[in-house]
Amino acid sequence: MKFGRRGVPAYLASLLAMMMGWWSSYAHAADPLSVFVSILPQKYFVERIGGNRVQVLVMVGPGQSPETYEPTPRQMVKLSQANLYFRIGVPFENIWLKRIIAANPNMEVVDCREGISLLSTGEAHGTGGEDEGHGATDPHLWTSPVLVKKMAVHIRNALAAVDPAYSHQFEANYQAFVQELEQLDRFIRQTLAEVTHHRFMVFHPAWRYFAHAYGLEEIAIEQAGKEPGAKSLAALIEWGRREGVRAIFVQKQSSRASAEVVARAIGAEIITLDPLAEDYVNNLRYVATVLARVLR
C-alpha cells in the first residue's frame, strides 16, 4: 500500500482531495446570489421569487429619497461583487447607473420597466394651476400590483438565467407571488368599491399608477420636484374647497410645508402614506383602507 507524505494511504488522500474539491464546488454553487435593487419594495419582490437563493441589498434605505440619493462607498464595493441589479427608473439611477456598471461590468442589469407603458409626470392633475403640462415619465410604477405582476416576470427570468439549477424553485415562488398580488388587487378593488369621490390630493406625486389602476385621480401639490408657485397654490386651495377634500397625503421622504398650508386653508387633515415601504402587500392594504375612508 502506498502512503502519502504524512502516512495517509494514497487512495484515501486521493479520495479526500476529490471530496474537498466536490464540497468546494457545492458550497460555491449553494451560495445565494448577490442581488441589488434600488428601493425597498423591490427587495420584497425579489425575495418573494428568489427565496433563500438570493441575498438582496437595497440602495435607497428607509426614510431616504430616490430623487436625491447617492450610493455610499461601502455600497459601491458590494456592487462590484454583485450578480444582478434590478433597476426601476427612479431618478438617482439616471446619474449613477453608468458608474455602477463600470464598477462591475460582469453584473447583469435588468430593467423592470421593460414592456410597461409609463405614465407622464404631467398627467392626472387638472386644477388649472400655472405648472400644468406634460413632462418626463413617472417612475412610481410599483404602486400598482397589476404592474408588479409584469415586473415579476423579469425577476423570475433573470434569476433563472443566472442560477438555472434553481429555475424550478424560482418558478414555484413566482406563481405563489402572482397569487399574492392577485389577492391584493382583489382586496383593493373591493375596499374602494364604495367610494363616492375619485380624486385625492397628495404633496409628492407618487400614487399615479395606483390611482390609474383603480379608477382614481391623483392631484399633486408638488410639480416637477418643485414647491408650487403662488398661483398654483391658490388654484389648489380653490380646487380643494370645491371638491370637499378631507385629507392631503404626504410621505416622510418629502417636505410637507406646502401641504400644511393647503390643509389649513381647506380644513383637511394631513395623512402620511409611504410608497417606499418594504412590507409591500400590507402597506398597500393600508393605503386602500385609508383612501376608502377619506373618499367616501
Rank of each mutant, 00 (worst) to 15 (best):
S34L: 02
G128E: 15
T127N: 10
I88P: 02
G21A: 13
V109G: 02
L119G: 02
I116V: 05
V110F: 14
G21M: 15
T68K: 08
Y11L: 07
V58E: 03
I95R: 05
T121Q: 09
I95S: 14
Q42P: 07
P66Q: 05
S24D: 06
S65T: 06
M59L: 10
V37P: 06
R113C: 06
L57P: 07
Y26V: 03
P105V: 01
I116A: 08
A13G: 08
G61E: 12
A13S: 09
S117V: 10
L84E: 06
L12K: 08
S38F: 01
G115Y: 09
Q81E: 14
N52G: 13
H28E: 10
N83T: 01
L118Q: 02
E132P: 10
G115C: 06
A17N: 13
A103W: 04
Q81R: 08
Q64F: 15
V58H: 03
K2I: 00
V110A: 14
R6C: 10
D31C: 04
V54K: 04
M19R: 13
K78A: 12
M20V: 15
L79K: 02
Y44Q: 03
T68W: 15
V110W: 11
S120I: 09
Q64S: 06
I88D: 08
W96P: 03
P105H: 03
L84W: 09
G122C: 12
Q55N: 12
A29T: 00
R99C: 15
V110Y: 09
E114D: 12
P91Q: 09
D31F: 09
G122K: 12
E108M: 10
Y85M: 04
M18N: 11
G63L: 15
H28P: 00
L33T: 00
Q75M: 01
M19S: 14
E70Q: 00
V60K: 05
T72R: 02
T127F: 10
P62A: 14
H125I: 07
M19N: 11
H28L: 07
E93A: 11
L40G: 01
K78C: 12
G61P: 13
T127R: 13
G4A: 08
Q81C: 02
A29C: 05
M76N: 01
M107I: 07
N106I: 02
M59A: 14
N94P: 00
V58K: 03
N104W: 04
Y44F: 12
F36D: 01
V90R: 03
F3Q: 08
L79E: 00
Y69L: 11
I116M: 08
M20H: 13
L33V: 00
P73F: 05
S120F: 05
V90S: 10
R99S: 15
V110R: 07
V54L: 06
E47P: 09
S117E: 14
S14A: 15
T127A: 14
S117W: 04
G7Y: 00
P62K: 04
R6E: 05
M76K: 01
N106P: 02
L33P: 00
